[in-house]
Simulated assay, not measured.
Amino acid sequence: MPYRRRQQLHRVARRATQPGRPNPIGRHLSTAPLPSPSPAAARPVPPRAPRADAVGEPERDGATSSRQGLDWARRTELIAVVLGVLLSPLIAAAGIWYSNNQVRDQLKISSQELNVTQEGQITDRYTKAVESLDKKAMDVRLGGIYALQRIMEDSPRDHPTIANVLATYIRTHTDKASKDGEVSADVHAALTVLAYRDTTRDKFFYLDLRHTHLSGIELQPRFRDVKPKETIGVLSREPIGAKLTNANLTKADLTDAHLPYAELSGANLIDADLIGAKLIGADLIGAKLIGADLIGADLTHARGLQVREVISAVIDSTTKLPSALAKDPAVTARIAEVESN
């Protein structure tokens, strides 16, 4: 192609590309100018600045890792504090419970050791007291009897055993009447201990004084202050006699015995010798008097005495009975029968 022709084509092409000029190439091609970009779209976007850390310095990858580690440490510390607050009362309660258990176990052990020591001491005291009952000296025997009384008071468990020992001592030392007809001091002391014992501790013990010779025995009542319900501010003296409840006194020799206000309820007095006995105000509820010799006995104000029991005993006009019984026809007939023989 000639040079000049080529130059012309180049000019046409440049003109076609200029905006606002018709397209010389052809009408079918769009000669609309391309939309120019908006100023906002054409504005360059500045690069994003890195985040600053707590001190205002740009955050780097190492700083991010450090911050994450710091947050985890704070979380761990917070969890530890919360757990400490929640668990400290439980730990304290567990410590108190454990300490209480330790103290309780220690007290239990100490109590057991103390009981063993006390039992050993009581056993030694009991052995020495019983050994003294076989001594010839009266004062030694009396000391042994009162030592047994003290053990009865200190050891309720040994009460029935000691009471039985004293009752046996009385029976073996009164199986025969004494030459002077009086009861020895040691026997009287043993009977006094039994007569004024705490009967609520008797359990299986029943006083057995059958076939004993206790003539002239004297067990005076003791008195206690009593405030009647219907009287305000006034105390009365109530006698407490010898406690011989349910005692076995079968064929016992109680001649001229002084047993005022004695508690003889349920006592077995069958064939007992009560000649001249002083039983004023005695409690004889349920007592068995079959064949008992009541000649000259004083039963004034005796309680619980029944006609059938009186007429089963040996009585005469010298027997002092409660007024209601003394006038009973059956009683007067029994007196006449005894005196006629």
Rank of each mutant, 00 (worst) to 15 (best):
residue 266 G to C: 11
residue 304 G to A: 04
residue 101 N to I: 03
residue 213 H to T: 01
residue 294 L to M: 05
residue 154 D to E: 08
residue 8 Q to G: 03
residue 122 I to V: 08
residue 113 E to C: 01
residue 128 K to M: 01
residue 132 S to R: 01
residue 70 L to Q: 07
residue 48 R to C: 08
residue 318 T to K: 15
residue 280 I to R: 10
residue 285 I to S: 13
residue 325 L to D: 01
residue 44 P to W: 07
residue 167 A to G: 05
residue 132 S to W: 00
residue 294 L to S: 13
residue 261 Y to K: 07
residue 120 G to K: 06
residue 260 P to L: 04
residue 231 T to Y: 09
residue 95 G to I: 12
residue 111 S to M: 04
residue 223 F to S: 12
residue 117 T to G: 07
residue 249 L to R: 00
residue 235 L to M: 09
residue 69 G to N: 08
residue 150 R to N: 03
residue 272 A to K: 00
residue 98 Y to L: 14
residue 302 A to H: 03
residue 214 L to T: 03
residue 282 A to I: 07
residue 8 Q to V: 14
residue 11 R to C: 02
residue 61 D to Q: 13
residue 338 V to Y: 02
residue 150 R to Q: 06
residue 308 R to T: 12
residue 58 P to G: 03
residue 339 E to C: 03
residue 336 A to G: 05
residue 334 R to I: 03
residue 65 S to L: 15
residue 117 T to Q: 13
residue 230 E to Q: 09
residue 295 I to A: 06
residue 320 K to N: 11
residue 102 Q to D: 09
residue 62 G to D: 14
residue 174 T to I: 01
residue 17 T to I: 04
residue 98 Y to D: 11
residue 238 E to D: 07
residue 272 A to W: 00
residue 80 A to G: 14
residue 176 K to P: 00
residue 123 T to H: 02
residue 52 A to L: 11
residue 24 P to R: 14
residue 275 I to Q: 11
residue 5 R to P: 05
residue 100 N to M: 14
residue 129 A to E: 00
residue 77 E to H: 04
residue 300 T to K: 11
residue 258 H to N: 13
residue 12 V to N: 08
residue 132 S to V: 00
residue 203 K to F: 02
residue 37 P to A: 14
residue 247 A to D: 00
residue 200 T to Q: 11
residue 186 D to I: 05
residue 146 Y to E: 07
residue 322 P to N: 07
residue 130 V to K: 06
residue 186 D to R: 00
residue 70 L to V: 09
residue 323 S to Q: 08
residue 328 D to G: 02
residue 114 L to M: 10
residue 327 K to W: 03
